[in-house]
């Protein structure tokens, strides 16, 4: 038992487990485990046929962590920096290392700014953002919304926040816009009187 030298004998025997569970013990020897040892020096193992890769052309200035000694040779180009969120991100990368909380908190702030910039910009397109279809909430109907939430789920204590967080800002902006329009119209009608 725990308060003496022996381990509590609670597990079934190895023979019993081998008979019951497919493959039990197949990797018992650490030598058969591909992650052992952690580091295995072998230049040829990866299939790379270069000492240092060719450099991908840098078509526009690419932001990088100041912990890097140079721009790495290959990088993603999914969504280049743009707008106010781009300026925040550029500053976060240029000013703060990954070791600083300011670096990450500025990037998180930029993410929120990016979402708002993009939502506003989408209103000027033929396909504005649609919080109903984009949240996938319509799938609730076909996927047992009530039965799925019965039982011991602990996330019920905070799921009420999700619709508020997603729809709240839209409702706030919409309400503010309606109030502003009514105020402008009200001022106009008072002038006419």
């Amino acid at each position: 038992m725990t308060y003496t030298a022996d381990k509590p004998a609670l597990a079934p025997s190895s023979d019993e487990l081998r008979a019951r569970i497919p493959g039990w013990g197949a990797d018992l020897d650490p030598k058969d485990r591909p992650a052992v040892p952690r580091e295995r020096f072998d230049r040829a193992a990866s299939g790379a046929h270069w000492d240092f890769p060719d450099r991908q052309p840098e078509k526009e200035p690419r932001e990088r962590s100041i912990e890097h000694g140079m721009l790495p040779p290959v990088f993603g180009t999914s969504v280049p920096l743009r707008g106010a969120s781009g300026a925040l991100r550029r500053y976060a990368y240029a000013r703060y290392s990954e070791g600083r909380a300011a670096h990450w908190l500025l990037l998180v702030l930029a993410d929120r700014v990016d979402a708002w910039e993009s939502h506003l910009a989408s209103l000027a397109t033929l396909r504005p953002d649609n919080p109903i279809t984009q949240t996938g909430v319509l799938s609730e109907v076909r996927h047992h919304p009530l039965a799925s939430r019965r039982g011991t789920r602990v996330d019920r204590s905070h799921t009420w926040m999700d619709p508020v967080l997603v729809a709240g800002p839209w409702a706030l902006v919409g309400g503010t816009a309606v109030l502003a329009v009514r105020r402008v119209l009200g001022r106009g009608s008072r002038r006419r009187r």
Binding site: G47, F52, E63, R64
Partner: peptide
């Protein structure tokens, strides 16, 4: 991952140093 950097040469493919300008703490 590039397969040739310090980390890839040691089998740490998730920690490649040649594919992620944005962070040194994570690979690509």
């Amino acid at each position: 991952y590039c397969g040739s950097c310090y980390f890839c040469a040691r089998g740490l493919y998730a920690n490649c140093h040649n594919v992620n300008p944005n962070a040194t703490a994570v690979g690509g």
